[in-house]
Simulated scan of single mutants.
Amino acid sequence: MAGIVIVGAGQAAVAAAAKLRALGYSAPISLLGDEPVAPYQRPPLSKAYLLGEMPLDRLTLRGDDFWAEHHITLRLSAPVSAIDRAAKTVHVAGEDLPYDQLILTTGATPRRLPATIGGDLAGVHVVRRLADVDAMAPAFRPGARLVVIGGGYVGLEAAAVAWKLGLRVTLVEAAPRILGRVACAETADAIRRLHLEHGVEIIEGVGVERLLGDAHVTGVRLADGRDLAADFVILGIGVTPATALAEAAGLAIDNGITTDAQGRTSDPVIWAAGDCASFPHPGGRIRLESVGNAIDMAELVAENIMGAGLDYAPKPWFWSDQFDAKLQIAGLNTGYDRVVTRGQSFWYFRGAQLLAVDALNDPRAYMIGKRLIEAGRSPDPAALADPETDLKALL
């Protein structure tokens, strides 16, 4: 048998391979990664790893012995250049590797600024891969001037780490407020206060006209004419799903590689999971960028390859570490029309239905909210807002 080929070597890829073996799949499994290092965790890269609190060996998802013990062929520095669906092969490193089933876990790619406005200058960084963080690490010198472009979680986390390392930090968000796409105004206000209290300058509602400098970035010109001096720049302006390989192979694409409810693409022997995949969800197709989704969807794909026939029912959860604060998020807030504030937790409702909760340094609120959402239960908003109500009683 040709076995299963997994394209990509991140969290989803490792989860799928491990689950297949745990379920008794005995044919060959090949995992193809385009980076030169073994699969590793991405979330700590811009936090604990950059701060020097987590060495490279602790980032690694599995020890070296895992691959041999589970008879999984791990190939590094092995980018796949094409999929031949008719021949059922992938082209990698000058050879055609056959597959019986193919799993695409190609992840996502950070957005960059166009070269026409200085996006190709040296000293302009993105945060996604180990090599990205290693490249920017030398610039994190006490007193250096950093401009972060983008007020989402990646940009805010980068700003917090830079402050901890003694840099002077300015964050620029073109939208009217930070976290505009992903969180309510109440959560954004709490996070903004956190940054301002630590001395991070935040500029909202102003776009970037261009980056300044000849070969290396020296500053950022804003749309209102202001110039911000910068020794380096970090872009946190979102990601796009890595679909080029799938698209070239003729697979359906819709905000990611289109899958059915079981993780199968428009080709019945090709599957997709993680950041690159979009799947059916009440109200339309969605794509989730999180560790939890990468693991859960990849494991479901492995089960379905083994014949389980299960539909994916995501249980979304996310987190963000900034300074000494932890923001924990459960559920999806899409379509909310009301936010109930309880201390440092923010509860999203659509009508009477609880959709999501953001909890800042409040793990109890997060856990109770997560349990309620997963059980499909919605507390009375008035009781929730009452500080005298025992949260646990809402269960």
Rank of each mutant, 00 (worst) to 15 (best):
V5Q: 03
G8V: 09
Q11E: 15
Q11F: 02
A13T: 04
K19P: 01
K19R: 15
R21F: 11
A22D: 15
L23E: 15
G24L: 10
P28F: 08
I29S: 03
S30M: 01
S30T: 12
L32Q: 05
L32C: 08
D34N: 07
P39I: 07
R42S: 13
K47Y: 13
Y49H: 15
G52I: 08
M54P: 00
L59I: 06
H70P: 03
H70Y: 12
I72C: 10
S77R: 06
A87I: 07
A87D: 08
A93D: 14
G94M: 09
P98I: 09
D100G: 13
Q101I: 03
I103F: 08
L104C: 09
T106R: 10
T109Y: 00
L113H: 07
I117E: 00
G118I: 00
G119A: 01
D134V: 06
M136N: 06
F140V: 03
G143Q: 04
V147H: 05
G151E: 11
E157R: 12
A159K: 03
K164E: 14
V172Y: 02
A183V: 06
I191P: 02
R193H: 13
R193T: 15
L196I: 10
E197G: 07
E201T: 14
E204L: 07
L212A: 10
A215Q: 04
D224N: 14
R226W: 01
I237L: 02
A242I: 07
L245K: 02
A249R: 12
G250H: 10
I253E: 09
A261G: 13
S266M: 06
P268R: 12
G274C: 08
F279M: 12
R285V: 09
E289W: 08
I295Q: 08
V301S: 07
L310E: 14
A313V: 15
A313L: 14
P314G: 07
D321N: 13
I329P: 01
I329G: 00
D337W: 08
T341H: 00
G343S: 03
S345H: 05
L354A: 04
L355V: 10
V357F: 08
D362F: 01
A365I: 04
L372M: 12
L372T: 12
A382I: 07
D386R: 03
P387Q: 09
L391P: 11
L395N: 08
